[in-house]
């Protein structure tokens, strides 16, 4: 089935099987491998992307469901090759990553969280990121980075 999806501002058109998951579509058809596959069962959040501006787990969405919609991946977040998105910058400055595997999903979930709750408390950040697991258990600096990014936006 032909699907037309706007990925990171660019129109993409591919012929996919209906059973193709969005994460496989992004990685294998669009060659955007920044979105990771972790648990593959909608628990870990490593595959988090934005669908029409909201964080979703792309391992639990069929590409055909995103037909005609807008998808943003970690590759589409930074305004330019020279400049990081404020959330990426905050992760960088707060050392909010250890192995880095969860980071793309964490950043995408955190950006979506601040869209909905622009000035969160620490508790709201922790609850808001409950769908993302960091198996290095580096949560403290991740929370710090999200609060830092929220502060920068103020």
């Amino acid at each position: 089935m032909q699907v037309n999806i706007e990925v990171n501002g660019t129109s993409q058109s591919h012929d996919v099987e209906p059973r193709t998951l969005l994460v496989h579509y992004l990685r294998e058809e669009c060659d955007l491998t920044g979105t990771n596959i972790g648990c593959d069962s909608s628990s870990c959040g490593a595959c988090t992307v934005h669908l029409n501006g909201e964080a979703v787990k792309s391992c639990t969405v069929f590409a055909v469901q995103a037909d005609g919609q807008q998808v943003t991946t970690i590759e589409g977040l930074a305004p330019s090759d020279e400049q990081l998105h404020p959330m990426q910058q905050a992760f960088h400055e707060c050392h909010a990553l250890q192995c880095g595997y969860c980071t793309p999903g964490m950043v995408m979930a955190a950006v979506s969280l601040l869209d909905e709750v622009p000035d969160p408390t620490e508790r709201e950040v922790r609850v808001g990121l409950e769908g993302n697991l960091c198996r290095c258990t580096g949560y403290h600096n991740i929370v710090k980075a999200v609060l830092e990014a929220a502060g920068g936006a103020r």
Partner: peptide
Amino acid sequence: VGDPQVRHR
């Protein structure tokens, strides 16, 4: 229910 990503869908 689930987490924010799940509740968005």
